[in-house]
């Protein structure tokens, strides 16, 4: 537990020591606002709601989260520091969860920096604050799932670009299989399965303002599952 927090603290500090993390953060904030105001015509629609914002961020996250997660293990392998880390008296799961926590906190901080948007909508009208809360909760859970996937992928390679692209593709596939266009193309019997598996369809129900324990459990198990795979990958490296 103590080791986990030590690792998380060290990782989190390294985000704020590196320029790249700030670049990603700023890029995320700029892109989400540009898309919201320019593409979605926020002011033209003339409604005090953040629904469009919550619709956009999962797409931007598809790029942002793999960009954050790609270096986490890959860089350790490239630099050789994995050898030091893995020979310290740290259990594999402590290292995995510590790294996940740090990246998740970084993600939450980035998300929190979009706070001017809810303030703005509240100033302009009378938004549904419950829906906004749910939207953020959904984004945190969705982002956490992307992150767990990206972290696992990063442990499989020492090449950050490979890690980025693979994580992007897997997240994209898991997100998109719940989209209506895809669902109409698959055999009817498989629709509930696709919907149940999709990162996207669970998000849309939370974002509508309904907190269903099934959705929360779904995301938590996604995160748990990929972190578990990550621990197994790290363990398997020892037997290599």
């Amino acid at each position: 537990m103590r080791n986990m927090l030590t690792i998380a603290g060290k990782e989190l500090r390294s985000y704020f020591n590196s320029t790249i993390a700030y670049v990603f953060m700023v890029l995320f904030l700029v892109l989400s606002s540009v898309f919201l105001f320019e593409l979605q015509k926020f002011f033209v629609i003339n409604q005090a709601t953040l629904r469009d914002f919550f619709g956009l961020v999962p797409i931007i996250f598809l790029f942002f989260v793999p960009a954050v997660s790609m270096r986490i293990w890959a860089e350790e392998q490239k630099l050789g520091t994995l050898e030091t880390l893995m020979t310290l008296p740290v259990r594999d799961w402590e290292a995995v969860i510590g790294k996940f926590l740090a990246a998740f906190v970084f993600l939450l901080i980035t998300l929190a920096l979009t706070f001017p948007l809810p303030i703005m909508v509240s100033a302009l009208g009378n938004p549904d604050s419950g829906a906004i809360f749910c939207g953020y909760l959904g984004l945190a859970l969705l982002g956490g799932s992307y992150l767990a996937i990206g972290l696992w992928i990063s442990s499989l390679t020492e090449n950050q670009i490979v890690a980025f692209i693979s994580a992007f593709v897997i997240c994209l596939v898991l997100f998109i299989i719940g989209v209506d266009i895809i669902l109409t193309a698959v055999p009817r019997g498989l629709v509930p399965f696709f919907k149940g598996l999709s990162l996207g369809s669970h998000f849309s129900s939370i974002e509508r303002g309904v907190i269903d324990s099934r959705d929360i459990i779904y995301y938590l198990s996604m995160i748990g599952f990929f972190l578990f795979l990550n621990v197994r990958t790290v363990e398997a490296r020892r037997a290599l």
């Binding site: 030590t6 390294s14 020591n17 590196s18 050789g80 050898e83 030091t84 020979t87 310290l88 008296p89």
Partner: peptide, 25 residues
Amino acid sequence: YLPESAPLYLDMGVIEYLRFIGHIR
């Protein structure tokens, strides 16, 4: 253990790194 060619976290300070290792230890 000192692995070959002493791999280190290049973005950390000397003291910061040794503190990290010390805490883990």
